[in-house]
Write a protein that binds this DNA or RNA. Sequence first.
DNA 1: TACAAAAAGATACGGC
DNA 2: GCCGTATCTTTTTGTA
Lengths: 109, 109, 109, 109
Amino acid sequence: MTEDVYDPYATGRVRAGKALATGGDPDGDGAIQYVAAGQLRSLVERIERLEKEKQAIADDIKAVYGEAKANGFDTKALRRIVGLRKKEPSVREAEEAILELYNHALGMV
Amino acid sequence: MTEDVYDPYATGRVRAGKALATGGDPDGDGAIQYVAAGQLRSLVERIERLEKEKQAIADDIKAVYGEAKANGFDTKALRRIVGLRKKEPSVREAEEAILELYNHALGMV
Amino acid sequence: MTEDVYDPYATGRVRAGKALATGGDPDGDGAIQYVAAGQLRSLVERIERLEKEKQAIADDIKAVYGEAKANGFDTKALRRIVGLRKKEPSVREAEEAILELYNHALGMV
Amino acid sequence: MTEDVYDPYATGRVRAGKALATGGDPDGDGAIQYVAAGQLRSLVERIERLEKEKQAIADDIKAVYGEAKANGFDTKALRRIVGLRKKEPSVREAEEAILELYNHALGMV
DNA sequence: TACAAAAAGATACGGC
DNA sequence: GCCGTATCTTTTTGTA
């Protein structure tokens, strides 16, 4: 069921007109499009819930760094080692390999 | 008690010397520093565990945007909505106000 | 010379009110603030001019990659070598040094 | 004329083998490939020169924002102004329209 | 279209 | 306590 006019609490659809398609309406037919308000609300809420969880973990990470600092560790170095360990196993070796090849081609040892 | 030589599995301390401090040793006195290897290992592992969880959630968020897109939503606008909702209404209004002020000052309506 | 009302072409000042300070007006006195329209316009124009130049150079870079590709070079590898060469001289060695130190402390060879 | 062995200073060609193609040799035939070392060097140098210029301009831009800040301008708003001015008015309006549509659908006024 | 690299923007830390 | 710097995140752009 569709409304002719905007109804924010509708679980149904809201008339959007061409404006819905940011890039223009694909078919170029100017057909009226609708936005499923309930679906949109659901998506936004799911994203917000996940971002909340993500932020909580980010806070935990920050707390660990704080603890490290309190125990005399250099957090800057700590962050760096964590970062370096992300691309460890074989990536680093691969980078070395191509570097050497091109350095050779470029005559730089 | 400290070791003169490196012992990777020690729960005790490993001599680090000046090299430990990425930013240089702050006092410039070259004093020998020690790093608690076991503690460091624990910190790194906790951080990595948390970052792994954080990344998993980031992937979930991306999946929701993917679903939104598949359902015809404009993800760019969706992201903006989510971003705007993070801000306190007063902050949002303040930002809009100054933006408008500058636009006026530039004669851009 | 100041105007009470908005004048986009003024070289003088435009009334801003509290809205100017995004973070709130620091003194909390609610004093009216003014925005120097001429100065703002100048700043914007300088930035836009510089960004235009920057974009022109970015286009030149793209053209060189296009030329490389036309001559049979693998542009992906080429981009990578250029990127790697950015952090060559001593940075890479420094990175290796700290990596080794912490890896030792972490018992990972 | 080609060399059988690697010659870093050659203006001619250097045997690369499969390793040259980062993305793998497209035909998968393992055919030996050659890289024109002199040409490669030239391309890399041109790119690096251009990137250097580009970075210098980026620094200039940053300096202008710093100047703006020193004169009491809100750089965040300033950046947004510059960003908005990049877009065609029609695009900007379309974006605003869809944003408003979604806000309505969410009952956020 | 989807992935990956680069640039921009926001945030957080350390110095003064 | 604020400012400048640096990191990290996000967004945009280019490529396969």
